[in-house]
Computed example of a mutant assay.
Amino acid sequence: MNRIIYFPLVLLVFIASCNTQKKASKFRFDTPEAGTLVKKGESIPLKLVFPSEISSFDSVIYAIDGEVLARKTDSTPVSLDTEKAPFGSRTLSAKLYHGGEEQVAYSNIVVVPPSPKRYGFRVIQEYPHDPQAYTQGLEFDHQGVLYESTGQQGRSSIRQVDYKTGKILKKTDLSPNSFGEGLSIVGDKLIQLTWQEKVGFVYDKNTLTKTAEFNYGRSSEGWGLCYDGKRLIKSDGSSRLYFLNKDTYAEEGFIEVYNDKGPMDSLNELEYIDGKIYANVYTKDIIVIINPDTGAIEGEINLIGIYPDKKESDNELNGIAYEREGKRLFITGKNWPKLYEIELVAR
């Protein structure tokens, strides 16, 4: 009886030992482990495990994203400097040449930016805001006139607002099937997104009369929109921001947005301020500050507590507007009764 129990146990140990030896003899990366987060600018060692049956080899070639990093004839580790590596997942490979044969090992790292600067806030002034406005886009023009896009099917609109009183000066309702989203201004035109209809609307800024429509490209939905003076920048709820031609509205590229923990998705309403993109993070009382050239999140504004009566859903922070003449920052949210002028406080 004891022998019957003992034999399978010995067999399992033997199999496990063989598997361990097989793993140990396989050509592979020892470090870094796949998916390792590396902050841009850090140097990390690339260390390989070589097959146990190979005592010498012709060469090993290291590469990152297919670009050769180093060629070696010994097994000492290679140092990878990530200063010039783009953010995101980077593929590492090593090709071992021995006896006319090639073996390949793979791993990957995720290059992320340094931790963002942290900001709190101070409320400078409060203004009335329509509590029935499901705010999706908020924008001042160069004359200091406030425009707002509101959402929800059957309630969506584009409007001109007296921000000091909250009074609606002009308003155009969308069709009942349209769900209004992000808003931006290009010259004398208002550009408004819709959520899942994959279509955007163009209006005359002065009359709020719709003059044109355009279809989306690869981006699946319409969330936020801003203008950097040369191109429109669009979010779709993912970690990507898309660049649109300001005249044709065609997508002409995108960036991936990263913080120090990896890709940042749920990017919502956008505003372009002094060379940076400010973005609401959906369902969170947070605004992130994004470098449009690299996609790095360089700052994070914590707005927890600014509107203490906020409900759990359909009441999120979602509205950023910058009054450029006075360099004033305003925020609000969906169905909030207040528009807040705030000042950032570094932490």
Score class of each variant (00 low, 15 high):
Ile4Val: 14
Ile5Gln: 06
Tyr6Thr: 12
Leu12Met: 04
Ala16Cys: 03
Thr20Phe: 15
Gln21Met: 15
Gln21Tyr: 15
Lys26Glu: 10
Lys26Ser: 13
Lys26Leu: 14
Phe27Leu: 01
Glu33His: 12
Glu33Arg: 10
Glu33Ala: 07
Leu37Val: 07
Lys40Ala: 01
Ile61Cys: 07
Ile64Ser: 00
Gly66Phe: 02
Glu67Thr: 13
Val68His: 12
Val68Asn: 10
Ala70Lys: 14
Asp74Asn: 00
Thr76Ala: 05
Thr76Met: 15
Asp81Val: 04
Thr82Tyr: 10
Ala85Glu: 12
Pro86Ile: 05
Pro86Arg: 03
Phe87Pro: 03
Ser89Gln: 13
Thr91Phe: 11
Leu96Tyr: 12
Gly100Trp: 11
Glu102Pro: 11
Val104Thr: 10
Pro113His: 00
Pro114Val: 01
Pro114Gly: 07
Tyr119Asp: 05
Arg122Ser: 12
Tyr127Glu: 02
Asp130Val: 06
Pro131Thr: 03
Gln132Lys: 10
Phe140Cys: 07
Asp141Leu: 03
Val145Cys: 13
Val145Leu: 13
Tyr147Ser: 03
Thr150Arg: 01
Gln152Trp: 08
Gln153Asn: 12
Arg155Met: 13
Gln160His: 06
Thr165Cys: 08
Ile168Lys: 13
Leu169Ala: 09
Lys171Ile: 11
Thr172Val: 11
Pro176Thr: 09
Phe179Gln: 04
Gly182Ala: 02
Ser184Asn: 11
Ile185His: 06
Val186Phe: 10
Lys189Val: 04
Leu190Lys: 09
Leu190Met: 03
Trp195Lys: 06
Val199Arg: 06
Val202Trp: 01
Val202Lys: 02
Thr209Pro: 13
Thr211Val: 05
Thr211Trp: 08
Thr211Gly: 02
Gly217Ile: 03
Gly217Ser: 03
Gly222Ala: 02
Tyr227Lys: 00
Arg231Trp: 09
Leu232Thr: 06
Ser235Thr: 04
Ser239Asn: 12
Tyr242Thr: 02
Asp247Glu: 07
Tyr249Gly: 09
Glu252Lys: 03
Glu256Gln: 08
Asn259His: 03
Lys261Phe: 13
Pro263Arg: 04
Leu267Cys: 02
Glu269Val: 00
Tyr272Asn: 00
Lys276Ala: 04
Tyr282Ile: 04
Tyr282Cys: 04
Lys284Phe: 14
Ile289Cys: 04
Ile290Arg: 07
Asp293Asn: 12
Ile297Ala: 01
Glu298Asn: 09
Ile301Val: 12
Ile301Phe: 05
Ile301Glu: 02
Asn302Met: 01
Gly305Tyr: 14
Ser313Ala: 15
Asp314Ser: 10
Asn315His: 13
Asn315Pro: 05
Glu316Gln: 14
Gly319Met: 01
Gly319His: 05
Ala321Gly: 01
Glu325His: 09
Arg328Pro: 11
Ile331Tyr: 07
Thr332Glu: 00
Tyr340Thr: 14
Ile342Val: 04
Ile342Asp: 09
Ala346Lys: 11
Arg347Cys: 08
Arg347Asn: 15
